[in-house]
Design a binder for these strands. Sequence first.
DNA 1: GCGTAAAGTTGCGTGCACGCAAGTTTACTG
DNA 2: CAGTAAACTTGCGTGCACGCAACTTTACGC
Lengths: 224, 224
Amino acid sequence: MWNADIVTTPPRGLRERKKQATREALREAALRLAVERGPDQVRVEDIAEAAGVSPRTYNNYFASREQAIVSAVTADREARIAAAVAARPAGVRLADAVTDAVVEQYTNTGEREHKALLLITTQAALRDAFLDTAAGIEPPLTAVIAERLDDAEAHTARVLAASVAAAVRIALEGWLRPAGKAEAAESFAAGGLVVPSGSLPDQLRTALAPLAPAFDAAEQHTQP
Amino acid sequence: MWNADIVTTPPRGLRERKKQATREALREAALRLAVERGPDQVRVEDIAEAAGVSPRTYNNYFASREQAIVSAVTADREARIAAAVAARPAGVRLADAVTDAVVEQYTNTGEREHKALLLITTQAALRDAFLDTAAGIEPPLTAVIAERLDDAEAHTARVLAASVAAAVRIALEGWLRPAGKAEAAESFAAGGLVVPSGSLPDQLRTALAPLAPAFDAAEQHTQP
DNA sequence: GCGTAAAGTTGCGTGCACGCAAGTTTACTG
DNA sequence: CAGTAAACTTGCGTGCACGCAACTTTACGC
């Protein structure tokens, strides 16, 4: 959705600001109501009303009820990750820059955020919506990786970014799976291999580690 | 969903066979009606009626109308890919085994399949549903990769499989994007980098290539 | 074979996503 | 400053996804 620049530059027109305000109001309302009444006791109509817009407008902003709730926690983490990568000095290994940026942005967990995460784990639909947010880091990551690599290897950047997104998703999945054992057993029917779930940073690093050689190879193609 | 074994072993009970038959009937009906009338002139009710089940039963099988249509083309490609990987001799490089298997299973395009693909490209919702099928290769791929690698590195297998799925998705995207230029320009707003779209096999190999070093490294950890 | 438990199907009801077209606000140009 | 084009909001209507509970079919043990 957004690239790193937009994070730093404030919205230009009054139009944009109102839009952001509405989005924020909806996020806020969705999360507050979900916490107050429980996730499935809140209807789109309620959220829209609390934010002062029509239900139809509500889903000009969010494609699903879950997305609104989750986005209050996620905020603009995607852009922050991209910015964090861009902020690393050009000398460091790209694989490290990415890994550190991801871990950093997922561990800055405020009080309110942590509370909301607890809520999310309680309902399958919310967990899924939360996992889907991982895919959102792909576009900004693509841009920032392409910048470090040569632009000639744009497709490589895209694949690497998508792989990172997939790995992050897996890490998050493994992290909040303990809440749902049945599914894990089912999806891994092939071999009963279960991973002892550690802390989130550990999960992230473990998931990203296998991709490091791919980053290294890509990097060497540009600066041999 | 399925692992490689299930492909070869026929369904055991009468129960399973009826289920498969219903699924097949729905797939078939969905595709036929979509071709006859055009994709958006077919309602779930019609598909269900043509297959001889209730509308409610229809979406015990498929979560969306698009999924049913697309699945007629996709069939059980996921399982075939996994089987193809498993079929390669143990000596070959894992990266090559996977790449070749993927390319092979995506290029065996029959007449009817090719016709349906043309239909899919015409509608955005169908294209999206088709792209989503790429994610389906992750579970069987995870199983078969884990088998080649040491089972101790199960998490690595999972990440690699997910990365392959992501890469395949990107390849497919790039392949059928020419039908929708506007979106491409928008999603790549950061830098106007466009990839000249070649044939599907080329796209697949190009997308999978950056992952090869990761496969090599994983393989070397098990057999140094 | 018979009874029982599990799996699958169906009707019904509810809330929702989304297309469409009209009305309203913002931004841009001369 | 006025006029116009583009963006955003909203009401309305349609089809759909999905939970729930009753009913039917299959599988399994005694």
